[in-house]
């Protein structure tokens, strides 16, 4: 039951990155960290302090940072680039495309402050298109962990994973509930948080917690909810998705991202090609965000748990129609 999921504490996912990159750097001397004037925001302090020779401060020049990262792979380094999600993707799309992805470089693009929960800084910084941009890039792995522990686990795991990776996380404190040792995280393997028979809810990132909240309400209403954390959007665990939807026969997808091009589209693609079912999408609907407190923004843009409950009831009705 979803009510059995215990919250360990509330921590920022970017803090998980900071701890993860420190431990990765300690364990692997090939790991190099680059930033574009956002070392503090990405929690790089301990790494910089202990491994100054493997830290590259690029200043406010993201395009140059991506290129330098590509070059650092030549000679066997494993570069992690760090900045906000907007500047990690949209701003440098062609640099990633040519110098990293097409060139097959082992660069880890680590992006914080993704989505609406960036909050008050507003739409210029709240990218809601990055998952789509990055999943369309041939050869790019896309990972959107759900909490502090999982972000830490993913940060460590990608060092041993050959090829370019986009790792997306966020700014606010958020319920932390996955295993502290990260043993429940495997790249490319969907994480079944709860088995159920009536409806599948697929979520990624911060919205996994919102989906848990919604799932609890649905359980109280008597539904059996299967909740799956799709932390790896690419490569997608299609077998897990097909297995779930062929049992529940309806689904809701939840993401802090535009419904055009995000997780929901990926799930729908698998469904229409294998096992067509009714699906409802939770995400922003072809819009920019705005300034405001994170939780208020999620509510205004329809990304909080009551919206997920409504979408679930709608899709359950469509299934039985």
């Amino acid at each position: 039951m979803l009510k059995d999921i215990q919250v360990l504490n509330e921590k920022e996912t970017r803090g998980g990155f900071g701890e993860g990159i420190y431990e990765t750097g300690k364990a692997n001397d090939r790991v190099v960290v680059l930033t574009a004037d956002l070392a503090g925001s990405l929690k790089l302090g301990p790494f910089i302090k202990d491994f100054p020779g493997r830290f590259v401060q690029c200043g406010i020049g993201e395009a140059n940072m991506i290129g330098i990262a590509a070059g650092l792979t030549i000679g066997g380094h494993i570069p992690y680039t760090t900045t906000f999600a907007n500047f990690s993707t949209g701003r440098v799309y062609d640099q990633i495309r040519q110098s990293v992805a097409y060139s097959g470089k082992n660069v880890k693009i680590c992006a914080s402050h993704a989505g609406l929960t960036l909050g008050e800084d507003g739409a210029t910084h709240q990218i809601l298109e990055d998952i789509g941009l990055m999943k369309m890039m041939p050869g790019m792995t896309v990972i959107v962990p759900c909490d502090f522990n999982q972000t830490k686990a993913a940060t460590k795991a990608i060092a041993d994973y050959q090829g370019p990776v986009y790792l997306r996380f966020g700014r606010p404190k958020w319920p932390n509930f996955t295993k502290e040792d990260g043993s429940d995280f495997v790249i490319g393997k969907a994480q079944v948080l709860n088995e159920g028979a009536d409806i599948s809810i697929f979520a990624c990132g911060h919205l996994v917690w919102k989906a848990i909240e919604a799932g609890r309400i649905l359980e109280e209403k008597g539904y059996s909810v299967e909740l799956i954390n799709i932390h790896t959007i690419k490569p997608l665990d299609e077998a897990a998705i097909i297995k779930s939807i062929s049992k529940t026969r309806c689904a809701v997808t939840c993401e802090e991202h535009n419904i055009i091009g995000g997780l929901g589209d990926s799930i729908a693609r698998v469904a229409v090609r294998n096992f067509p079912i009714p699906i409802e999408y939770i995400g922003t609907n072809d819009t920019f965000g705005e300034s405001g407190p994170p939780m208020d923004l999620l509510k205004k843009y329809g990304l909080d748990s009551p919206n997920i409950v409504t979408a679930a009831e709608k899709v359950l009705k469509r299934k039985s129609a």
Binding site: A63, I68, A70, I74, Q98
Partner: peptide
């Protein structure tokens, strides 16, 4: 050692390779 064609990217890559050395 790297794709090029979309202009302006090679100097950054060369710098990265130089730092790597």
């Amino acid at each position: 050692r790297v794709a090029s064609g979309s202009l302006g990217q090679g100097l950054s890559v060369a710098i990265g390779a130089a730092l790597s050395k």
